[in-house]
Structures are given as structure tokens and as C-alpha cells.
Design a protein around this nucleic acid. Structure first.
Length: 928
RNA sequence: GCGCGGGUAGCUCAGUUGGUUAGAGCAACUGGUUUACACCCAGUAGGUCGUAGGUUCGAGUCCUAUCCCGCGCACCA
């Protein structure tokens, strides 16, 4: 990799002849981040290519909206993906993170239309062609912004491959899928009630409708019986504006109150008409008066009733939500909500309104436009979902796995209640439906259809469907259409062969229905022949991904959704400036629990920035302690350790390093990312910096100390492994330190190294005669306990800063004497004592008890006897309780009998230790 | 109505198949410039794990009931 090296020494940061650089006092993320990102990109670090010698690892980015800008949700989603991808590279896999953007049909069109309105024009005025030109301009002006933002975050996507769902090739894939699904009988055209958005004037799928609680009125009114003038039926409705579309009145067949009226008629008040009274089981007897007005053209239930009783459909509304001439002259052109008021007034004037009571109900709203949905009769394209059963089976059998597993249920529940999907949209920005109709002919007759990717040859006599496809109907092909599916091109086939099924998907739970489930179904159907059923092996090769990592949504610290209007949505770029990209990444991963909501506040991610500083300074300290040559490989470091036996603390920290390596390995295997940063933080900061480095300071005092070299080599070993473990989370700073600390071989990037697994690491150590010993590590934990007690007793007497104190230690037994003596200078250093004397008996001095023995503080001045007595009494009480619990347990015959021997043994040991401790504390107390 | 998740220290959360005296970060308090780091170091305090039962030698962890909070799906006009 000497070309990398040449380039780096040419940069101002690499001044000397040495590979390594001296670290500045403070970590400057901005400088490091831009430098390394361009170096990585220029050297093709993120390119995912077929490498038959390596296991593939593929992630498809959930494509952000082409005109979108980076928000906190993206930060979390993409930081996670980057962590998985970078980890895969360090594990020696051929990793591909495939980026791209989505055209977001309705969202983008709404934005472009708003821009047009601001300029005093409209899409209708411009016409389709001009409008699309504007939309393309818009997406080009705003597109790509998010890619640069993702770069700032450190995302290691293979940018060469970037796809946009409106690319010609992608559009062709979408059209091909449409044609194929049509041929296989899954796509059809149907006339039925759809969720109509009067604002965007398009049909929507069920998933795009939000049910929102509304405070409205329930109007009770009277319809006169035609056959029995003077007799009235009382009917309740929330929507009087649809009276004009009523074509019947329904009661329950078992409802005795109205049994004699079934088959008769009543008067629709306006426009005045006779409508039949029918009996239908869809009516709830208990609700209101038990009489339902039936408006088949404006309500799903009514539509079904109308069908059963052959009632006519009268559509009284225009696409924009105003009423039409069928509603009568006085309502024609009136907005639906004005019409509601007008209809009520008219009922009142006709003396037909009985009452209007306050009423809470749920109304469907257009997710995008935020206006109430209008059920509307229209002809649309529908998809009968393919492979529903197999999509369920894939998850039930664990061929696809959700992490956390509980999202399976959400997914399965949705699939169990699935309904056909309305995929056509009356929009212009999007993929036009590849269907043509014979000009002037009846469009509802399939005889007059032409469905193909290329369209009819005889273009004069055919016209293409004006509509476009739902965005999700194109993005559900993302895992394979991005590669160029379908194609006979050997390159495309080879890539699909190698990278598909992809390894995993990382996304939020909010799009499990919209996207995840649909990708699974389309993958199962389209990536192979139309055969039934599919075997498990076929499922295995057709699924779009094997593991689905579901994370939560980011909210503000009060749990509110982030939104522009609330102003509680921080700009990630500001945060990167403030905390560094690595700091932000570490911080956001650290607060992302496995639940569904993530409460964000800047305070909570400071830990990331602080951790970067800690890492930086630990490395700086290591540099200041001795030169860093001899770090160029794992083996080089091990070689430096080969001759000398490991001192207590060195053994301990290497043991902890192996434990941590294993822990993190398990977390990745189980997709339990919520503990990842905790493990890393605890080990590097809590164990290495707070204990090992401090302990090593004693060994580093003199270069003549034989332990000097060991301390440096152990530090290098730990830092090296830590950088590898941290790299996926904090790519920039770890790369900088990797180079600066001389771990890079010939200038190679950190990602070109291998992350040794715990087992390999242990093996490599053993083969060099560097063996760690668990029992020895355990003893050091006890030494740490003793030191903590010493510090505590000093703090108690406010002598924390004084280093000239004398401590007495009376060891618990012979082996403790040995351990304390062996580590005496370290204990002195860490406890902050000038001298430590081992004594059997000490009287009249404040002391604290640890597993290794009692530590006393030698005070020349008088001590506060009362305070000391109180403290010891409190301690005694605490120990008494513990002993009581322990004895209770051990005196219990069934505990001895039934509990595993190891647990019983543990309890015995624990009790013995606690008893010894209590005796010691009691003795101390009496000595005053 | 059906389903899912949660209720553990002031706050945000960990807590593997039930097994030592329930942890972390932040905040608080006390003290501290000791060979890196004040974005730091040392220490202290703070919890009857929502409530009530049950299973068990042993329950934060399993079961039942119940109360709160959040979310999803369905929806009666």
C-alpha cells in the first residue's frame, strides 16, 4: 500500500520521515475528518466488488428522499449501517453498502407544486411536460445534498454505484416488474372506493391514511316514510353533506322496531327522492336509533350494503372535495365542509333535524396533505400481494430474522390482515404506469389494454395511462433493481449472484409495512420463476435480506416527535461541528436503546465527544512515554512481550481485553447494539485509562525498570485492539490514531487490517508464549478493591490530595500478604501514599476492610472518634444484614439440596468473606 | 375492541437461560492541577425494581391479576 503512504506524507499532516506523527494537545475532528474521508474515497476503500475469496456482506441503504436533508433519524440509521459495514470489512468480508435516493412521488410533487404556487402558477397551468421539467430541476438542485452530509458523518457507501429510483434503468426495472406481475395475474384494474386525498387529488393506499380522533357532531334527523305519511325514521349521521348521495336506508334484519318497514321507502329530503328501506346485518342495532343512511358512493360499509341490495351509486363530489351538480344547484361547487353546515341548516329549515350532539370519532386523514380522506369511487390499478404465505413462512422459520425479534409479530399481524394494494396515483412525478389504452375505447375492458415495458408499436392509436405508481411500488424492488435486474448481462447476473440476498437491512419500525414487508414479497416473487410453492431453499435464495435490524425513532428530550415547527430538531451538521462526527456517532449509538423511542438531547451525546478526547489523550500519553516503533503488526507487538512474564496489572488488562473482545463479538452476532458503546467505554476508559495506565505510571518511571518495556508493549497491544474494536463506531479518530501510533503497515488504512476474534487473539498470544491467567486477573480486581478502600478512607478524612500519607495494611492471610507485597508500589501510586507498611495489628486508627485485608490511615492529628465510630457502625449494620441473608440461605436444607453445587459453594465463600470482614470491622470499632 | 412495548437511583437507560450485598452515564454533593486528558481525577449520597398475589431453596428476572404510560392495527354511521 505504498501509494497510500506516499500520498499521506505529501499531506501537511505528515511532516517527518517517520510513519507516525506527534499528537497535538487537543483532538481537532474537523481537520482529521475531511482529510481521511477524501483519502478513503480516493483510494477506493468503500468499493464493494465481487471477491470470490471473500464472504460478501451487503447492505442496501434505505433510500432517503432525493430532496431531503440529513436529520437525526438518518444519523442513527446510517451510523448503524456504517458500523455493520465497517465491522464486516475488518472481519475480512467483501463489504458493499449500496447508496441511493428515492423520488418520493407525492412528497416531492407537493413541494414542487408549492414552489409553483409561490410563483403564481400551477402544474395544471404548466402542463405535464413542463411540470416534469421543473420537478427534475428541483430534484437535481436539491439532490445529492444528503450524500455530502452522509460523507460528513463518515458513511462508507460505495458512491460509484449510487442509484436514483427515477434513473432510466431503475424505471425500466419498475416497469418490468409491473408487466411481470400483471402477466402472473397479480395486477388488475378495478372500480371501487379508494382513499381519495382531495388536496393532492390522488388515490392513496390504506397505509397512507392516518386515523385521527376528531371532535364532531352526531346529527339526528328524520326521514318520512313514503308509504305511511306522517311516520318518520330517525337516523343519525356525522356526514349530512352526503345526504344527497343517499340511495337507501338500512336496518338490522332482526330489529323488531323496524321489521314492518323493510321493503317500504322513505323520502330523501334533498334532492327529494324515494329511497328503499333494506335489511342488512352490517347495521348495529345498538348504535343510535339503529337506522343507517346508505350512501354507497361515499362510504365503504355503505358501498358493500349497496352492492348487496343493488342500490344505485350517486357520486355527489368532485375530485377536489367540492360538491357537484348531482348534489343539487344550491350545493354545486360548495366545499364539503361548507356543504355540511348548509345541509344541517337546510334540515333545520325543513324541520327534519332532531338534535345535534357533540361526538368524538376517528376520521382518516391523508398522511401527506393532512386533510380528511374522502372515500371515492374510481378506477385504479391494484396489486394482489404475491407470496404472502411464503413471506410469513420465511420469517416464521427464521430464514429472515427480525432484531429485536418482537417486530416479527407486527409484521405477521399485518400480513394476516392484508388487503389488495391500490398502486396507481393521480400524480405526475413518478414512474408512469406501463399501460396503454386503445384511443376512444372503453378503458375498463381488458381487450383495449396494452401492457408492456416498451409500449405499443402503433403509437397513433394508443394512449398511455396518465397515472404513476405509488413510490413504494417502486422502492420495494430496491434490493435487486439497483443491481440492474432484470438483465441477461453477465455482470449483472454475477453481481446479483454474489451480493443478493443482501446481508441485512437497517431501518425504523415505522416502515415495516410500507417497505420491509413489500420488499420481501416482491423479492420472493420476482427474483425467480413463477412457480408454486417455493421450497425453503428457494426462499433462502430469493429473500432480499437475511437479518432486519429495527431501531427506534429519535424524539426530543421530552419525548416529542422532532419537527421543524417545534424547532426541536437539531441540524446534524451543527452537532458534527460541535462533537465531531465520531463523537456524534458514539453518542447517538450510546443512547439508542432497544425500545421504540430514543430521547435525544445534546447533553446525552456529550459522552461521545468526551470519549474521543479520552482516546486521543491516552494515545498521546503513550507517545510521550516512549517511541512507537515496533507496532506495525500484531505479531511485532507480541514479540516484544514474548520474553518477559506478565506482571499482575498487565495480565489483568490483557485478560479484560480478551473478555471485551468476546463480549463485542457476541453483541454483533446477536445484533444487540445497545451494549456496544457501554462495553467499549467501560473497557477503554474504566479499565485501561483509570487503572492500567495509572498503574503503569509506576513501571514507566524509570527506563531501567525491566517492566518498562512490558508496560509499553501491553499498552500498545490494548490500544491497537481497542482501535480495531472502536473503528466501526468512530472511523475517523481511530484511523488517525492508527497511523499516528504506528500500527499501520506501510501506510495501509486501518480497514485493511483484520480484527482478531477473541479466540484468534488468544491463540496468537499462546503461540508467542504470552498467556493470560484468569486467577491472576481476579487477584488484581482484589488489589483494586483495596486501593478503592484506601482512597475512600482518605477522602473521608479530606486528605485526598496529600500524597505523603502513610498507610498501614494488615493482610487477611498469607496469600494476601504476597499479593499486596507484589503490588506495593502500584498500590502506593494508585492510593496516593508515600509509604505503606504491612502490620499485623493496628489500633486507634481509621480503617477500611477489603477482601485482601484492612487498610488504615495513619493520622498524626487527632481523629474524629465519633464520626469514625458512626461510619463503622453503619458498615457493621450493612454486613450484618448480608450475613443474615447468607446464613438463612445456607441453613436452609433445601437450598443445599437443590441449588447447584457451584452456587452453594459461592454462597459459602461469600459468607465466610463477609463474616471475616464483619469481625474486622467490629474489632476496628472496638479499638476506639 | 385486538395486539405490542414499557413502568428499576433526580433524569435517560442496562440487567443474558431465576443464583453473591441490583449497575452505568448524566445531574447532585465533597475534595483535588499527582508524568495524558477539567471534554479530567478521587470519593459520597441516592433504589422495599408500578401494585397485589403465586411458583421456587431462591424472583428485578417466571406465572396470574391489576393500575398507569407509549405505540400499532381495527373501527359504529
Amino acid at each position: 500500500m505504498s501509494w497510500v503512504y506516499l500520498e499521506l506524507i505529501a499531506s501537511p499532516f505528515f511532516t517527518g520521515r517517520s510513519m507516525t506523527t506527534e499528537l497535538s494537545q487537543n483532538y481537532d475532528p474537523a481537520k482529521v475528518e475531511t482529510k481521511w474521508y477524501s483519502a478513503w474515497e480516493e483510494n477506493g476503500c468503500f468499493e464493494g466488488n465481487i471477491d470470490s475469496g471473500k464472504e460478501p456482506f451487503t447492505i442496501m441503504i434505505p433510500p432517503p428522499n432525493v430532496t431531503g436533508v440529513l436529520h437525526m433519524g438518518h444519523v442513527l440509521d446510517n451510523a448503524l449501517q456504517d458500523i455493520f459495514v465497517r465491522r464486516a470489512r475488518l472481519e475480512g468480508k467483501s463489504a458493499l453498502w449500496f447508496p441511493g435516493t428515492d423520488h418520493a412521488s407525492i412528497a416531492t410533487q407537493v413541494k414542487v407544486e408549492k414552489a409553483l404556487r409561490d410563483k403564481g402558477t400551477s402544474r395544471q397551468e404548466l402542463g405535464r411536460e413542463k411540470f416534469l421539467e421543473r420537478a427534475w430541476e428541483w430534484s437535481e438542485d436539491h439532490g445529492g445534498v444528503i450524500f455530502n452530509q452522509l460523507r460528513k458523518l463518515g458513511a462508507s457507501c460505495d458512491w460509484r454505484r449510487s442509484r436514483f429510483t427515477m434513473d432510466d434503468a431503475y424505471q425500466r426495472s419498475v416497469q418490468h416488474a409491473f408487466v411481470e406481475l400483471y402477466k402472473r395475474g397479480y395486477i388488475y384494474r378495478g372500480k371501487r372506493l379508494v382513499n381519495w386525498c382531495p388536496a393532492s387529488q390522488t388515490a392513496l393506499s390504506n397505509e397512507e391514511v392516518d386515523m385521527r380522533p376528531q371532535k364532531g357532531k352526531l346529527y339526528k334527523m328524520r326521514y318520512e316514510i313514503v308509504e305511511e305519511p306522517g311516520r318518520f325514521l330517525e337516523i343519525s349521521t356525522t356526514r349530512p353533506e352526503t345526504i344527497m348521495g343517499d340511495t337507501g336506508v338500512a336496518v338490522h334484519p332482526d330489529d323488531e322496531r323496524y321489521a314492518d318497514l323493510v321493503g317500504k321507502h322513505c323520502w330523501r329530503p334533498f334532492p327529494k327522492a324515494e329511497i328503499p328501506i333494506v335489511a342488512d346485518r352490517a347495521v348495529e342495532k345498538e348504535f343510535g336509533t339503529g337506522v343507517l343512511k346508505v350512501t354507497p358512493a361515499h362510504d365503504q360499509v355503505d358501498f358493500d350494503i349497496g352492492k348487496r341490495h343493488d342500490l344505485p351509486l350517486i357520486d355527489v363530489m368532485n375530485p377536489d372535495g367540492t360538491l357537484n351538480d348531482l348534489a343539487g344547484d344550491e350545493f354545486d361547487g360548495m366545499d364539503r365542509f361548507d356543504a355540511r353546515k348548509a345541509a344541517v341548516a337546510k334540515l333545520e329549515s325543513l324541520n327534519l333535524l332532531v338534535e345535534a350532539e357533540d361526538y368524538d370519532n376517528n376520521v382518516g386523514f391523508s398522511e401527506r396533505a393532512g386533510v380528511p380522506i374522502e372515500p371515492r369511487l374510481s378506477e385504479q390499478w391494484y396489486l394482489k400481494y404475491p407470496r404472502v404465505e411464503e413471506a410469513k413462512r420465511a420469517v416464521e422459520k427464521g430464514i429472515i430474522r427480525f432484531h429485536p425479534k418482537r417486530w416479527e409479530k407486527v409484521y405477521l399481524h399485518w400480513l394476516n390482515n392484508i388487503q389488495d394494494w391500490c398502486i396507481s396515483r393521480q400524480l405526475w412525478w413518478g414512474q408512469r404506469i406501463p399501460a396503454w389504452y386503445r384511443k376512444g375505447a372503453d378503458r375498463s375492458d381488458p381487450e383495449n389494454w396494452h401492457i408492456s415495458v416498451d409500449g405499443p408499436e402503433d403509437t397513433d392509436n394508443w394512449e398511455q395511462d396518465e397515472d404513476v405508481l405509488d413510490t413504494w411500488a417502486s422502492s420495494n424492488l430496491w434490493p435487486f433493481a439497483t443491481f440492474g435486474w432484470p438483465s441477461d448481462d453477465p455482470k449483472v447476473r454475477a453481481e446479483l449472484d454474489y451480493f443478493y440476498p443482501t446481508s441485512m437491512l437497517v431501518t425504523g419500525f415505522d416502515i415495516i409495512f410500507f417497505w420491509v414487508a413489500r420488499m420481501i414479497m416482491s423479492g420472493l416473487e420476482l427474483t425467480g420463476e413463477a412457480k408454486e410453492p417455493l421450497s425453503d431453499e428457494e426462499l433462502d435464495s430469493r429473500i432480499p435480506f437475511k437479518d432486519i435490524f429495527i431501531h427506534g425513532l429519535i424524539r426530543d428530550s421530552k419525548g416529542r416527535k422532532m419537527s421543524k415547527s417545534l424547532g426541536n430538531s437539531p441540524d446534524p451538521l451543527d452537532l458534527i461541528e460541535k462533537f465531531g462526527a465520531d463523537g456524534l456517532r458514539f453518542g447517538i449509538i450510546n443512547i439508542a436503546p432497544s425500545g421504540s423511542d430514543i430521547l435525544f438531547s445534546e447533553e446525552r451525546i456529550e459522552i461521545g465527544r468526551n470519549f474521543c478526547t479520552k482516546l486521543w489523550n491516552a494515545c498521546r500519553f503513550r507517545q510521550m512515554s516512549g517511541d512507537v516503533s515496533g507496532n506495525a503488526s500484531l505479531d511485532a507487538i507480541l514479540e516484544r512481550l514474548a520474553e518477559t512474564p506478565l506482571e499482575g496489572y498487565s495480565n489483568w488488562i490483557l485478560f479484560r481485553m480478551l473478555e471485551t473482545t468476546q463480549e463485542i463479538e457476541n453483541q454483533f452476532e446477536r445484533f444487540e447494539m445497545h451494549q456496544l458503546t457501554h462495553s467499549l467505554h467501560r473497557f477503554f476508559w474504566g479499565d485501561f485509562c483509570d487503572w492500567y495506565v495509572e498503574a503503569a505510571k509506576a513501571m514507566l518511571q524509570s527506563k531501567d525498570d525491566p517492566r518498562h518495556g512490558v508496560a509499553l508493549a501491553v499498552s500498545d497491544f490494548v490500544i491497537r485492539q481497542s482501535l480495531l474494536l472502536l473503528h466501526p463506531v468512530m472511523p475517523f479518530i481511530t484511523e488517525e490514531l492508527w497511523q499516528a501510533m504506528g500500527f499501520s503497515e506501510d501506510g495501509a488504512f486501518i480497514q485493511e487490517s483484520q480484527l482478531p476474534k477473541a479466540a484468534d487473539l488468544r491463540q496468537a498470544m499462546v503461540s508467542r508464549g504470552v498467556a493470560v491467567d484468569e486467577a491472576g486477573a481476579q487477584r488484581i480486581e482484589e488489589v483494586n478493591g483495596l486501593i478503592s478502600q484506601a482512597r475512600a478512607i482518605k477522602a473521608e478524612y479530606n486528605v485526598a490530595s496529600k500524597r505523603d500519607v502513610t498507610l498501614f495494611v494488615s493482610p487477611a492471610d498469607d496469600s494476601s500478604t504476597l499479593i499486596v507485597s507484589e503490588n506495593l508500589d502500584t498500590i502506593k501510586k494508585l492510593a496516593g501514599a508515600a509509604t505503606i507498611e504491612l502490620r499485623k495489628e493496628v489500633e486507634n486508627l481509621p480503617g477500611a476492610v477489603s477482601a485482601l485485608g484492612t487498610v488504615y490511615l495513619d493520622l498524626t492529628s487527632a481523629i474524629d472518634v465519633e464520626a469514625e465510630k458512626e461510619r463503622l457502625s453503619k458498615e457493621l449494620e450493612k454486613l450484618g444484614k448480608a450475613i443474615q441473608a447468607g446464613e438463612g440461605k445456607l441453613n436452609n436444607a433445601s437450598f443445599i439440596e437443590k441449588a447447584p453445587p457451584a452456587v452453594v459453594e459461592g454462597a459459602r465463600k461469600q459468607l465466610a468473606e463477609t463474616k471475616a470482614k464483619r469481625e474486622e470491622v467490629a474489632r476496628l470499632l472496638e479499638s476506639f
